[in-house]
Amino acid sequence: MSLEAFQRIMTSENVHFMLRSASYSVIIAICALVGGSVLGLLSASMKMSKHGVLRGIANVYVEIIRGTPMLLQIMLLFLGGPVITKSLFKFVFTPNPYVIGAVAVAINSGAYSTELFRSAIQSVDKGQWEAARTIGLNHWQTMKEIILPQAFKRILPPYINEFIVLLKDSSLLSSIGAVELLQSARVIGADNYNYLVPLLCATGMYLVMTLTISFFARKLERRLAESD
């Protein structure tokens, strides 16, 4: 491999193509993180609920997702989704790989963040609930003002980690035809009969993104630690 190969393959046009695809990876990861947080918070509160049925639903959700490969979940939703809607609602849709992919990754992330949220919320000292009660706050005010902000601090390190995981997992969407960063490298590789160069470039881009996120995460963590 020579520098010449790099210059020949990584034309500005191809670099732009990869950067644009990398931005799709980031967008998919952000959508999955936001969707996964909503699902995770919902299923965490179901897990902590007094009602056995709600706890059961949350448990089934978490176990199914954690017990099967993510690649399978993505394919199931992409290939199986239209079949399900057809038989149930007589409605056929053409699945968009980006949208379906982001949804699948969100559903997956939600299951993992369920335990994250639950343990963080339950790790907040019981005395905080009691003190909030004595100053007249109700359950939801206590959750919002007292418990979640403290849980958030504990969640932050694993949560940032989850975002990095999602950014990497978004590469699985290449299997259903979404042109994210990894897929763009494969396309360029196929065009030029040289996979090594674009794959190395993709490696560099993934690292730049993940290391940047870690860097800002550590900064944020230090700032949040000020009141400790």
Binding site: G127, Q128, E130, A131, A132, T134, G136, I146, D228
Partner: peptide, 18 residues
């Protein structure tokens, strides 16, 4: 909590909001 709004409570371990 509404009925006990005017009853203050001080804990052994303070339970301030950190």
């Amino acid at each position: 909590t509404r009925q006990l709004a005017h009853v203050g409570f001080v804990f052994q371990l303070f339970n301030l909001f950190p």
